[in-house]
């Protein structure tokens, strides 16, 4: 607690500003542009992933505390598994002569 009370919470402010930019950016692109549906989905999808990263590191104290390293490792492990299983399956099943 004490550590949080002292000093200016710079990382929180930066995180907050970035979150706002990303959120309004996504809303703006979805509502105010004439891009095709596919392009919009790709852009706001990427923004969402960046948003999730910022939340994890700036607000959810991912690297703090004695388990900081473990947490980062666990997240990387989870991401690796998800990419292998989901992206891998889609790639394997949708390429080749069947399609």
């Amino acid at each position: 607690m004490e550590k949080i009370m002292k000093g200016f919470p710079l990382s929180h402010v930066i995180g907050f500003v970035f979150s706002l930019i990303l959120t309004f950016g996504a809303a703006g692109i979805a509502l105010k542009t004439d891009l095709s549906f596919k392009v919009i989905m790709w852009i706001i999808g990427s923004l969402a992933i960046m948003q999730a990263g910022i939340q994890l590191f700036m607000f959810m104290h991912l690297r703090e505390g004695e388990d900081g390293k473990t947490n980062v490792l666990n997240i990387l492990y989870g991401v690796f598994m998800a990419v292998v299983i989901v992206a891998g399956s889609i790639w394997v099943l949708s390429s080749g002569h069947a399609h």
Partner: peptide, 8 residues
């Protein structure tokens, strides 16, 4: 042999 193609 499922035939996912050469890249896969």
């Amino acid at each position: 042999t499922m035939g996912s193609g050469p890249a896969v």
